[in-house]
Amino acid sequence: MTATNAGPGIDVAVADPGAVTLTLPPLPSMVRVGRLTASSIASLTNMTIDDIDDIKIGISEMITMLIQHGDGSPVTLCFEADDDNFVVEGSTAATRLDVSGNDFALATAVLEAVAETSSVAFNDGRIVIRLMKAVAVGAAER
């Protein structure tokens, strides 16, 4: 546990839970489950709600892409969060990754806009999407 001074009179201990892994069946209804998990974990880092909203968008894009391009295998999400960073890596099995569609372009554009860094890769039969968001409100403030 680390303590962070998040503002006047507020001392918040930031949990560092290590990696949290979530495995989801590739269903549309699961996108929201992923969002809720992401926002819960993100709120542990004491980032602002605007940043949490961005993460929800990013996660949504990530899971949607994995569902649409995957081969029907479960989608695995791995979250790591600490004082300074929120990182999530999502992956699923796929036979190929088609990057030519408009949907894909739109989704990756949004992903890039909401994250500090993001990447989409296809390796060894798995699509792997990563998203990293820096925690703006933290030890650095005030």
Binding site: E61, D103, L106
Partner: peptide, 9 residues
């Protein structure tokens, strides 16, 4: 409450 790119579509 929320919209993403697929909703935007």
């Amino acid at each position: 409450e929320f919209i993403d790119s697929s909703g935007l579509r």
